[in-house]
Amino acid sequence: MTSGNVILNIKDLNVNYFTLEGVVKAVRGLSFTLRKGESLCIVGESGSGKSTVGLTIIRALPSNAVITSGEVVFNDVDLLSLSEEEMSNKIRGKEISMIFQDPAATFNPLFTIGQTLSDVVRHHLGIKEKDKVREHVQSMLRTVGLPDPERVARSYPHELSGGMLQRAAIAVALSTNPKVLIADEPTTMLDVTLQAQILDLLRKLKEEFNLSMIFITHNLGVAAEVCDKILVMYAGVPFEEGSCEEVLLRPIHPYTKKLLECVPRAHRRVGRLRYIPGMLPDPKNLPRGCPFAPRCERATEPCNERLPKMVEVRSGHRVACHILAPGGEH
């Protein structure tokens, strides 16, 4: 585990949203590393702060969000210290790119796919000649498996299906040959058959483009499909991190265990779907201690008092829990 291998290193990240109703602590004390060629899955329920992580890395947060502390180190540079101009010219979209949940809302409805894609290509790759831009646009659209790239380039977003739009979005994101791709729930809005196709495509392109990937999802099944490493988040706090196999087969944190029990399995026909009783805590009014404590069967005194800290339980498997991984305390 040399540092030369690490492409992205998040250190003790804290992000708050300032809303009319109060301060929302979206991310609290998150740290993780992403190595070259690795794919990391951030898993959590909606509202767990996982999307905020993606937007923080490329610094595209809404204007009411404030990064209160932490570092986002990419290739030995702290991205949070760069100017907006450096960020948009050199990093955002160029080195680290992103695809989003709703493919229909990703593209501006008044511009063709080709126009958007060529603007990105022109800006980042500095290609001026019309023919070369067009060529690159078409080859990217072909790479993501879109038939008839010429027609797709001429199409407006409303003329394409969700699956095609998500492929087109991947084409835009990868057109600049980035090192890291952040995929924020890229299959959530798609049909199941399309989901599998898009996941396949991402897996294939990851090899082809030598990508490191951060995959944000609420779906453990999707996580198992594509990822080497899993990070489980809850109410902005990291709970468990480890290799895909470790976390899915030997989970330690009570939340992860519960989450895994909730995954419906076709071959195990139980009478009812399982769920975790209770709800995510109100983000404006978080409990003082472990945010999962109110829903946790094993919660005891310290759980309500202090936020648990990540502790390495097995090699490469870190857990934040007072009961099952004691020792981590602030």
Partner: peptide, 26 residues
Amino acid sequence: NEWHVRSALAWGLPKRIVLYKYALKN
């Protein structure tokens, strides 16, 4: 506030293009 503005920024298009070419047309 729409997603396509955020995604255009996320793909690294400069603010001036996102605002005056893309958003303005909408």
